[in-house]
Design a protein around this nucleic acid. Structure first.
Lengths: 111, 111
DNA sequence: ATTTTATTTCCATTTATATGGAATTGTCAA
DNA sequence: TTGACAATTCCATATAAATGGAAATAAAAT
């Protein structure tokens, strides 16, 4: 992922409401969650939520899929993955040594 | 790290100039790099750079240390680590299963 | 057909971010 | 103690983001 795109995606995660949406959608997993359910969890006006979702969709952090009159939001996990992968790649020195210890932490322990 | 702080830090990384600064400082490692060196690499006006640095300092992504008339900028690696750690922790489902495959990628391979 | 439900888009307003020239501060060297 | 250098702060301006009520769209139920 090139820098501009990574920055754009990080900017979208860099807002407390949107980071909360991200969090909720991670917990929801692959099947996603309806806009209404998200709204209920966050307790914010529909239009505000809609704007935030639109922004996240624009940078491919999430996707929507309609089922009847309900719109389901699904996190684009591959995109999130590539974003985090980019950050990690950037967190290596020129000589290829990782500077962060996050890799060493057991993933299960963090959950 | 709580959500608000994580969001604030992500927002600072979510700007192409600042992400470029981040990148440069990662490559520079622990000893850091002078403001002038960063400016030379980015080729932007000093005042603009200064504003960006100030923002990053405000959320503790970096630190400055004066040596004579030169100011050295050092990335706060522990902070970056905790931020990425937070994101990874959020990327686990409620039942503790990591949803991202980034952990499985060999860290050396990404550098 | 009409109402209800789910969600978006339109619109206006407020607030924050980004940018960079000019003036300023801090430090060293002659 | 003046001059140059490193970097910031001041200031003004332009642009973008955030917010939410009201109107519009889409789909289903009555």
């Amino acid at each position: 992922m090139e820098l501009e795109l990574a920055a754009a995606r990080l900017a979208e995660l860099g807002h407390s409401t949107r980071l909360a949406i991200f969090r909720i959608l991670v917990k929801a997993g692959g099947q996603g969650l309806s806009v209404g359910d998200i709204q209920q969890q966050l307790d914010i006006p529909g239009s505000t939520l809609s704007h935030h979702l639109a922004r996240m969709i624009k940078v491919d952090l999430l996707q929507q899929q309609r089922d009847g009159r309900t719109l389901y939001c699904q996190l684009q996990f591959e995109v999130v993955e590539s974003l985090l992968g980019y950050l990690y790649a950037e967190c290596c020195t020129a000589d290829g040594q990782p500077l962060l210890a996050v890799n060493k932490i057991d993933s299960a322990a963090r959950c």
